[in-house]
Computed example of a mutant assay.
Amino acid sequence: MDIILLIQAVIMGIVEGITEFLPISSTGYLILSADLMGFWTKEKVDLFVVVIQLGAILAVIYDYWGRLWHALTGLITGKAEGLNNPRQLGLSLIIATIPVMILGFIFADDIKTHLFNPVTVAIMLIIGGLLIFYVESRPKTIIAVEAEDVSFKTALMIGLFQCLALIPGTSRSGATIIGALWLGVSRKASAEFSFFLGIPVIIGAALLDLLKHSDVLTNSEDWLVLGVGTLVSFIVGLLLIRWLVAWVSLRDFKIFAWLRIITGVVVLIAAWVFGYQFAG
């Protein structure tokens, strides 16, 4: 058993748990972390980066089980306690999921082959940071206070924003939260709708990737490394979800914009000035 590899998997799990729900790109930071640590081969890292996100999204399911159950039962039966339109949230999430599912199914392998590298991540981190500053500087008119209030039209627009997150470094949470804010969804509702929207997208992507590429995991140690990373991401994600909701209810995302831009600039400097040869 390679203890160093397990320690690296724990670090990757911590990185995923911290970054999944922040607008800073969990995939981007996982790629950078793996590259800096020399973690695994590229083929295994590419699978690991996608599947480990299951841990963080399972934390969402655990923490929001009551509301998600109401959304599911409301979608099926048309009845849900305390909701005027019990099918609204469930249908909105389905509508918002369709665009990224279609594009992800068609282009996932090409994206992983050509864009899963630190320089692409750095560029998208910078672009995303600038977009956060732009959206946060605009006056906002709130059209949806709770996630259950998001209209089908707004859900489709959020789903189109989510497609940008197929490019590593963009951030799924960042694209959906900032996109929702731009469209007039409240800060709290933007964060929670983004959490819920990640459930079908991340579970679908992880299962599809496992189905297509599980052959790169050649022994029980490989599966253990993947399991450890996923478990750690679940634990860390569970600790951070409520904190983020409280944060966004009171503050803006400009601090994360600065973090994105600074990280992106540092990576580009490392690639250009110091001639650092990134893996993959």
Rank of each mutant, 00 (worst) to 15 (best):
I3G: 05
L5Y: 02
V10L: 12
I11Q: 01
M12F: 03
V15C: 14
V15M: 14
I18A: 12
I18G: 05
F21Y: 02
P23K: 03
S26C: 04
S26M: 04
G28K: 03
L30H: 00
S33T: 15
D35A: 09
L36E: 01
K42C: 05
K42G: 06
L47N: 03
F48G: 03
I52D: 13
I52N: 15
G55R: 06
L58M: 06
L58Y: 01
A59D: 10
V60Q: 07
I61E: 07
I61W: 03
D63A: 14
W65D: 00
W65P: 01
G66F: 13
G66C: 07
W69K: 05
L72H: 00
G74L: 11
L75E: 02
E81V: 04
L83H: 01
L83Y: 09
N85Q: 08
P86C: 01
Q88Y: 01
G90D: 12
I95L: 15
A96L: 10
T97R: 07
I98Y: 09
I102C: 10
F105A: 14
I106Q: 05
A108K: 11
N117Q: 11
N117G: 11
P118W: 07
V119L: 13
T120H: 04
T120E: 11
V121N: 00
I123A: 07
I123W: 04
M124V: 00
Y134K: 06
V135Y: 08
V135I: 15
K140L: 13
I142W: 08
A144D: 09
A144M: 13
A144H: 04
A147K: 05
A147P: 02
F152H: 12
F152M: 14
A155W: 13
F161H: 02
F161I: 05
Q162L: 14
A165P: 00
P168I: 02
A175E: 04
T176M: 15
I177L: 14
G179V: 02
L181Q: 04
W182G: 10
A189W: 03
S190L: 00
A191K: 01
A191E: 05
F193S: 10
F195L: 13
F196Y: 14
V201M: 12
I203F: 15
V216F: 12
N219W: 07
E221C: 10
E221D: 12
E221W: 13
S233W: 07
S233N: 07
I235Y: 11
V236P: 03
G237Y: 12
L239R: 06
L240C: 14
L240H: 01
R242E: 12
V245D: 12
A246G: 15
A246N: 15
S249V: 00
L250H: 08
R251K: 05
K254I: 00
W258L: 15
I261Q: 04
I262L: 15
V265T: 11
V273R: 09
V273Q: 13
F274W: 14
F274M: 15
G275N: 10
G275D: 09
Y276N: 07
